[in-house]
């Protein structure tokens, strides 16, 4: 991860052999803080931890929360392996709610797993 800090140099890191994160071998992006991302708009059944109100919206990686067994798998008694990277993603409130009544500085941060995120050109 460290290669993409500070946030000014944010971007997707290419998959590399022997890379630290198993996620890379599964083809998910590894996002550094500051990277602009879009939440996937998929509508899937099951134990999904990505709220509907964020799907399809753009935000910015605030931080990397760590790697956790995939709850979508755990919910069905499976091991949730390999673990997936969980990101704290920040959204501007006026981007989420067109009629938002409040400061343009207001934000919402949610925890979103890597397989729900795509990088957006900044």
């Amino acid at each position: 991860m460290s290669g993409n800090f500070p946030p000014g140099g944010a971007g997707r890191q290419d998959n590399k052999p022997g890379a630290k994160f198993a996620a890379e071998s599964f083809g998910f992006g590894v996002f550094a803080p500051g990277t602009r991302v879009r939440v996937r708009g998929a509508s899937l059944p099951g134990h999904i931890r990505t709220p509907y109100f964020l799907r399809g919206h753009e935000g910015v990686i605030e931080s990397v929360a760590g790697k956790f067994p995939n709850p979508e798998d755990l919910a069905y008694g499976r091991p949730g392996m390999p673990p997936r990277t969980l990101y704290r993603v920040a959204f501007r409130q006026p981007d989420l709610w067109p009629a938002y009544a409040g400061s343009g500085q207001d934000t919402l941060i949610a925890d979103i797993f890597e397989h729900w995120l795509d990088e957006r050109p900044s």
Binding site: R49, F68, D106, T107, L108
Partner: peptide, 15 residues
Amino acid sequence: PEDVAVQVHDSTADL
């Protein structure tokens, strides 16, 4: 006040 930004934290997953 308006000049205090509000940040909502939605604990959707493992934190």
